[in-house]
């Protein structure tokens, strides 16, 4: 086993880039789990395409993070050699896929968030972030078309598909508060014109989600017992298992390559 690397107590910009990177990486890995198990061949290809888009975003962001860190690490080091408590992703993206409805509901909530986020970040004072955002924004808009399409189709579908979507949203709702939390890191970067303002993102996310929910005939759950902590490395028990699988090869065979 090779030693873990530790990027804790990062300066704000590095911290922010790692948060974005880890969201993309962890959800990319989760979506990849549908490979070979999709409900239809066509849908499986779509989900795995999205996984690859997200891994691509994670690569760009982790490369930038490695440069900001300046400790000689590579994007792969940051992806495969950090421990769970050093991951900054939202809890939302690490939750297991469960059924197709859950996967779609989570994806739709996340895509809505990413669309707003990357739309804003294209105007970031950080030119690297703005470039990455321009590419990611196009991908996210397509992902949203797909996930929102399914959200409405299933929600306004059969009694069973409706019930599954509602149950998934009810289960997932407590993980959505974290999307718009803010802390010193983000407040400072928002003031500098580098990060997107969570308050602005929230109102747009709320409006768009309400429109989708109406069309899908799905009821918005109440904010109750909202979960938090992912950004600061406090994760659900699910992340560790996922990382064990994702990181196994580089941990067991350090430096292995194609």
């Amino acid at each position: 086993m090779t030693g873990s690397i530790d990027v804790r107590a990062a300066e704000p910009r590095l911290e922010y880039v790692l948060r974005l990177a880890d969201n993309a990486l962890v959800l990319g890995q989760r979506l990849g789990e549908w490979c070979g198990k999709g409900p239809a061949l066509e849908e499986e290809m779509a989900l795995v395409n999205f996984a690859l888009d997200l891994v691509g975003q994670a690569r760009m962001l982790l490369s930038y993070a490695a440069e900001l860190e300046g400790a000689g690490h590579s994007e792969d080091d940051l992806a495969f050699l950090r421990d769970g408590m050093d991951f900054r992703n939202l809890l939302l993206v690490e939750l297991p896929n469960r059924d197709f409805a859950f996967t779609i509901v989570r994806q739709c909530l996340f895509d809505l968030y990413q669309c707003g986020l990357y739309e804003e970040l294209q105007r970031s004072g950080d030119s690297r972030l703005a470039e990455i955002a321009a590419k990611a924004s196009k991908e996210s808009r397509y992902h949203l078309q797909h996930s929102a399409g399914w959200f409405v189709r299933l929600g306004d579908g059969t009694a069973e598909s409706h019930q599954r979507v509602q149950a998934a949203l009810d289960r997932i709702w407590r993980y959505t508060g974290e999307l718009f939390e803010t802390d010193d890191v983000e407040t400072a970067l928002v003031a500098e014109g580098i990060a997107a303002d969570p308050a602005v993102l929230r109102s747009e996310w709320d409006n768009q989600l309400d429109r989708i929910l109406r069309e899908a005939t799905i009821t918005r759950p109440a904010d109750d017992g909202m979960a938090s902590g992912g950004r600061h490395g406090r994760h659900t028990e699910h992340l560790g298992y996922m990382l064990a699988e994702m990181q196994f090869l580089q941990r067991a065979y350090p430096g292995a390559s194609w």
Partner: peptide
């Protein structure tokens, strides 16, 4: 060719299967 429930899904599936 591909399977899809309606036109919109067919277009999206075509994008994902044949233009990668």
């Amino acid at each position: 060719s591909l399977h899809a429930a309606d036109q919109q899904m067919a277009l999206q599936n075509a994008r994902d299967l044949y233009t990668r």
